[in-house]
Design a protein around this nucleic acid. Structure first.
Lengths: 225, 225
DNA sequence: GCCAATCTTGACGTTTTCCTAACGCCCAGC
DNA sequence: GCTGGGCGTTAGGAAAACGTCAAGATTGGC
């Protein structure tokens, strides 16, 4: 299910969006100011963000920048009619699209679908990666080894997913930490050591001599297919 | 965040641009002459360059040529009013746009945004360099030789990356030392001898008679493709 | 409110990398 | 033929990074 975060300070809009989006089978969460909005993006990793530019605590473009610093989640901006400079600033900051208030729900939904669709092609190719030792199904979020499912915790899965999606490529420690734990992390490489070790224990034929989850000392990790 | 390098010898302009760009959430770095400007482009790989044509140490078009030899980063040129021939020469040399001093900050920002946007989709900067002996994949941070991965330490990789990104060009010892070890270094050429030797041992067919990692006695090193 | 699963955190032994010094070679200049 | 500077090569101890384990702290479901 597609998860959408709505950041808006007007309860009526929040309510209308929640009802309409839920009815169309989106999973909706909300925030009513920029600070909690940024926290929510970091915490929930929504598939899309709907952001009202007129927030009480900070400028909308600041929120966009805060998100764009580490994530490419599509952002659709709501702005009042006539605030052209604001719209331009928001798009420059990295927003994907905008809708002028008052807006038709159909238009918003269309733009939301488009934005999510545009962001999707991250997974067009090979949603299943196979090695001699195990198989990773990215779409189904499943790992099979010796015919049996391997049970992974959420954090283990996120880590594995990033490495597998970038198979062959070296991913730096900082990037892994930010993608899995959020933008506030970047130097806690001990987390990585613990979770990589757990993945190796569950996936590698010889966990102490890894064949697929390789360490590049001082730089990061690499998934070798 | 978009990273912009400003090359200008007038402190007041440098200051004004830094303030305005930083406020718009660009990441700004500066250089005050052509030599250090070229070094900074190589080192920082900015997303755009703002270049004043009137530099103390070299002609602006030389700087453009120096950059265009290996990079397609957008370059916006600042020139005084009336210097038409200079502007033409700069555009011929590969500049993307120009702004005449004195300039309005809004205009410069607009042109900067346009240049960055234009560059964005069409800049898959050949991340893989091949020689008869081995292959360097800059994006994946990977070196393959005879079908097998070559293992490089972080320092070895940094050194190789700089030389490969500037392939064909002579890089001075001082620049290599500063780029890899930091600005406090510049005369420790023995470091370079040790690490270049290690790279040659891992990459060259005949390490004692290098074909790709060439020494320029008294000057520096060069990667020959 | 309790329990199980998961996530953090710290400690310790091992591996890898980095820095540094020493030595030999080559070549130019005297 | 001696001398000195720049370069290549090697090796070993110091420092940093890594793997591993296990004990708290948190979280979420019942």
């Amino acid at each position: 299910m597609t998860r959408v975060l709505v950041i808006d300070d007007e309860p009526s809009i929040l309510r209308a969006l929640r009802i309409n989006l839920t009815a169309r089978n989106y999973e909706v969460s909300t925030a009513s100011d920029g600070t909690s909005g940024l926290a929510a993006v970091s915490r929930e990793r929504p598939d899309a963000v709907i952001l009202d530019l007129g927030l009480p605590d900070m400028d909308g473009t600041e929120v966009i920048h805060g998100v764009r610093g580490w994530s490419t989640t599509p952002i659709i901006v709501l702005s009042v009619w006539g605030a052209e400079h604001q719209k331009v600033a928001a798009l420059d900051a990295g927003a994907d699209d905008y809708v002028t208030k008052p807006f038709g729900m159909d238009e918003l939904l269309a733009r939301l679908r488009a934005a999510v669709r545009r962001a999707a092609p991250a997974a067009p190719d090979e949603p299943v990666v196979t090695t001699p030792g195990f198989t990773v199904d990215l779409a189904a979020k499943r790992v099979v080894r010796d015919g049996a499912d391997v049970r992974l915790t959420p954090t283990e899965w996120q880590l594995l997913e990033i490495l597998v999606r970038n198979r062959g490529r070296l991913i730096t420690q900082k990037q892994l930490l930010q993608d899995v734990w959020g933008p506030a992390y970047g130097s806690e490489s001990n987390y990585l050591r613990v979770y990589v070790a757990q993945l190796r224990r569950k996936l590698e034929p010889e966990p102490s001599r890894p064949r697929y989850l390789l360490t590049e000392p001082g730089m990061g990790y690499r998934f070798q297919a």
